[in-house]
Structure formats: C-alpha cells, structure tokens
Amino acid sequence: MNNNSNLLHELTKGIWKENPIFVISLGLCPTIAVTSSMTNAIGMGLSCMFVLVCSNLFISLLRNIVPNEVRIPTFIVVIATFVTILDKMIQAYAPALSASLGIFIPLIVVNCIILGRAEAFACKNSPIASILDGIGMGLGFTLALSLIAFFRELLGDGALFGYKIPFFANDPALIMIMAPGGFIVFGLLIALKRTHDLKGKFTK
C-alpha cells in the first residue's frame, strides 16, 4: 500500500509539485525556443519524454555496476544514443516535425532535465520508479511547454496548431512569438505558480 502510493507520487510529482520548468527550472533553452507554436511544443515535449523514460530505465539498470568515476560519461553516452535514434526516427517518419524542430532535437542531449533526472533520481532508484519518474517529468515538461505555447501562438500568431482563431487573428502581437514574448509568458506563469504555492504557507 505504502509502496504503491510512493510509486504514484513518482509519477505525479513531475506534473505539479516538482514541475521541471516551473519549479526545477531546467531545460529552459528549448522552452523559449520551441514554444512559438503548439505543434512544436508538444512534439518537443513528447520527444523529451521518450528520451527521459529510456535513459532513466537504462541508467537505473546500470546503477549498481557503473564505476563511480565514469558515471557522468556513461550517462551522456546512454542519453546521446537515445537522442540520436529518436532524431533519425523523426527525420524518417515525421519529416514535417523534423523540419520545424530542426536543431532542437539533437540538442536534447544537453537538456539539463534528462541528465538531472539521471543524476538525481534514476541512479538511486529502481527501474520501475525511474520509468514512472521519466513519464511524470516528461508529462510535466510537455504540459508546461504546451501552456506557454498556447498563450504565445494565440496572442502572437492568432492561431492554435496553425489554425487561425477568429478575433485573435485580426491583429496579433508579433512580439509574443519572438524570444521576448517567450520570456514574458514564462515569467508571468512562474509568478502565478509561485503565488499559488506560497498562499498556503502564509495564510496558515
């Protein structure tokens, strides 16, 4: 019973309590870069989730046999392998997504969330918990990207998933799909979440 609720916690913590973007604040470079459209945000989020789950699983399996001195190089090799496989697969079977995400797929290798979870979680926990952690963190990342992209694409391009939305499409605020707009939306959302999190602490 206790064990089961622990496992459930590993799955859900990444979505809200330890959200990789809004709380841990890792992997912010792709966050600003790809959230100018919903399609890109979800594509990037799911790609990261795939790599996270695979790398978490393998690193957890290796955790008892990997020599401590070469821990990081080993993790990087595992992560880079999965990212490269994913990049090839996307190029071959989803060329449109590959064209719009471009360099950001290979750059998942250096996404801090992935190495961060390997170091902080997968190398200390069982394979099952690590998979759940990967799914949770991946979902949290995807949801965070989608939320930012929702505001940026709607306000900056007057569209969602590339489809024009009446009223918003009349005179969109271009700055929102450029880099400054990314920082503005990101900052406001973090502020909102912090306000919500702190509320409980002070009223008590």
Partner: peptide
C-alpha cells in the same frame, strides 16, 4: 582497467544500436 572496460562495453553497445538505427532509417530519409 575495469573502468576502461566498462566504458568500452557501454560505447560498443551504443555504437551497435546507432548503426542499426542508421541502417533502418537512412534509406527512408
């Protein structure tokens, strides 16, 4: 030696996987 051997094995497996995926996807791309 043990450390080097470990890295060697990990890299070999990785290389093998990459070669395999390259072989599958290259013609499609």
């Amino acid at each position: 030696l043990k450390t080097a051997l470990f890295l060697f094995i990990i890299s070999s497996i990785s290389g093998l996987l990459l070669a395999l995926s390259e072989q599958i996807t290259a013609p499609v791309i």
